[in-house]
């Protein structure tokens, strides 16, 4: 523990919650806070944050997206680190804001600056915080889904696996075609539901073939898609955000599961 406190050394981290976590699964936000605090960081959650603008950006509405980007830049201007529990939201800020704001040099410079300070949670924990999840336990076999933006735009691949390898009792099973998209794709999954269905079904077959009883991922969007489809198909695999398991918070009902009372 002392080790870890030295790394964080009381530095403040701003949590970019992401809209899906804010709306659907606040426990992921608490898990992120818990992990960051465990690594010795102080966590703040600026209230002026809402959405990174990705839906608008990916739909070709760069005016709306740029407006939201400017808001995010302003909201997070004062922090040394901005951390998001999502590869795709972090990638929007890191890999896309500078290009989105290319028509305004001052804003673009600010976007670059923010991009340099922004981290996806797993990568931050593994590379900056040097966290090890040694005091966490999770009994069971899990499959890990790499979300596409995190994997290809931010190089997140080994970090969550390394963190998971520290969890007592957890057995990781790799799936076939692990670099293939689950069919979420933001608005894609509602614009082309049938194609998305085929894609998620292929993914679920690969998950089923691992024999794992739990599915983990670092992006809530992918998880909502896969968990929703697993329930529709009646598959008995439970889905969690990887942060929840690392933080020892897997006693929450899994995604799409009701509260038993």
């Amino acid at each position: 523990m002392n080790e870890q406190i030295r790394h964080g050394a009381g530095t403040t981290v701003a949590l970019f919650v992401t809209c899906l976590v804010d709306l659907f699964r606040p426990s992921v936000g608490f898990a992120a806070v818990h992990l960051l605090e465990r690594a010795g960081f102080r966590v703040e959650v600026p209230e002026a944050q809402t959405c990174c603008g990705q839906p608008a950006y990916n739909s070709g509405d760069s005016i709306t997206a740029a407006g939201l980007a400017a808001q995010v830049i302003r909201t997070f201007s004062e922090y040394d680190y901005v951390v998001a529990p999502s590869g795709s939201c972090a990638a929007t800020i890191i890999a896309h804001y500078p290009d989105l704001l290319r028509h305004d040099p001052a804003l673009q410079a600010a976007a670059r600056d923010l991009a340099d300070r922004t981290w996806e949670l797993m990568r931050f924990l593994a590379e900056v915080a040097d966290l090890e999840a040694r005091d966490t336990t999770f009994e069971g076999s899990v499959a890990y889904h790499d979300s596409c933006s995190g994997l290809r735009e931010l190089g997140i691949r080994e970090q969550p696996r390394k963190l998971l390898s520290g969890v007592h009792g957890l057995r990781l099973h790799e799936m076939e075609d692990r670099d293939v998209c689950c069919g979420f794709g933001g608005t894609f999954c509602v614009k082309y539901p049938e194609i998305s269905e085929r894609m998620v079904d292929d993914k679920l077959d690969a998950i089923r073939d691992t024999g794992a009883s739990t599915l983990l991922s670092g992006d809530l969007g992918c998880l909502l898609n896969m968990a929703g489809r697993m329930h529709r198909r009646g598959m008995q695999v439970r889905a969690y955000h990887v942060a929840e398991v690392l933080a020892g918070m897997s006693d929450e009902p899994a995604i799409g599961e009701g509260r038993k009372r």
Partner: peptide, 10 residues
Amino acid sequence: AWTSVRDLPA
């Protein structure tokens, strides 16, 4: 469009 092929987690 979402629920045509999958449940929506609450």
